[in-house]
Nucleic acid binder design. Structure first.
Lengths: 191, 191
DNA sequence: TTCATTTTACCTACCGGTTGGTACAAAAAT
DNA sequence: ATTTTTGTACCAACCGGTAGGTAAAATGAA
């Protein structure tokens, strides 16, 4: 039953998001998913194998929601950026402002010592920056921005600002930190 | 010998910075510091006790260098911000662009589940934002900034940008990511 | 259809290794 | 002689992973 496997992945994603990859033990997953060890190792060959499937699954979900659903949609560039910011605030409000960014957490935890996870998280941010850059180009064509810098540097800085803002939010356990930087982003792009 | 204790703290700081708090085992520390377990537990009552002393030590070092040495110095506000950015780039260049921010890493790893470390890392960022805000106020008095927003929001956003930039740098293992956002920060404050 | 065989799906018990931490004696310094 | 310092042996708990077995379902031959 492939449904069961997906359920294990979704439960593992929540645990890894909250506790981190290394601190999430297989025992934690077995207990949360109410399964035995045999079932786990029937679907996944190792903990790392599960981790990779979890990251791929979350990337796909995020890609559908943010890239396809917002940045590549047929809306006005200003509206796209506003939607993107609102989406981030919405997600982290629902998470109680305390577990941070799934990909950012993994990038910080693993990228120095695990090349596979480093590449996977890196692709998320590269994709985000790339698609945001395209939207910024659209925006620049219809309006002059106060900051005269190339769109790639600006896109990268906005992503950095949001990721840093999410980190401050997690550290302070207060969504206000993210809202504050979100508003500064809006001013940077004249919204 | 208090010198030995300090040496253990410094070695532990490097290990924790690179591997994270949880993944740094006491065995790792014993091996790196060439000491026995008895000596370790003579100086520290527990791993968390060591961790607290390490964070306090690093906070003091960082405070001397960045807060006292740069942001509270008698220089021009523009020069202070430039020094601060150059300092960050210098530190992470020396670290090979791959271990990230000591406090940011700990904030991401621990702040959801360990209140003591959460408060300690939070104080670092609050202090940083506070002192940067004062410098931005100085700057605003002598020059109009392109972004019309209150200095606290701007200070918080700049810290977020740098922390996010450091994360992207770590994830990409390339100092260029931090340099890019650093240059955008300069443009935001008219340097 | 019926029976034998294989495959799928899953569980329990256990493995070697590592974790943070303790007990205690030996050694060194005072 | 006594206090400070340090090495060694050990502990229970936990880690990821494996071995070996079981029950059900799918498959094939008669």
């Amino acid at each position: 039953m492939l449904n069961k496997k997906l359920q294990i992945i979704e439960i593992s994603a929540k645990l890894i998001h909250s506790k981190g990859y290394e601190k999430t033990s297989i025992q934690d997953i077995l207990q949360a998913a109410q399964i035995g060890k045999g079932q786990f190792y029937y679907y996944f060959s190792s903990k790392q194998d599960l981790g990779i499937e979890v990251v791929d699954y979350c990337f796909e979900k995020w890609n559908q929601r943010v890239i396809k659903g917002i940045l590549e949609s047929e809306a006005d560039p200003k509206a796209k950026i506003e939607k993107m910011l609102a989406c981030a605030i919405d997600v982290h409000t629902k998470n109680g402002s305390k577990c941070g960014c799934f990909f950012g957490n993994l990038a910080v935890e693993l990228s120095e010592h695990n090349e596979i996870f480093r590449e996977k998280t890196n692709k998320v941010f590269e994709s985000w920056i790339h698609h945001l850059e395209i939207v910024l180009d659209e925006l620049m064509r219809q309006e002059k921005l106060p900051l005269s810098c190339d769109s790639h540097a600006l896109a990268q800085s906005i992503v950095a600002m949001l990721e840093g803002g999410i980190m401050l939010m997690k550290n302070r356990q207060d969504i206000a930190a993210l809202i504050t930087v979100s508003n500064v982003v809006k001013k940077m792009v004249c919204i």
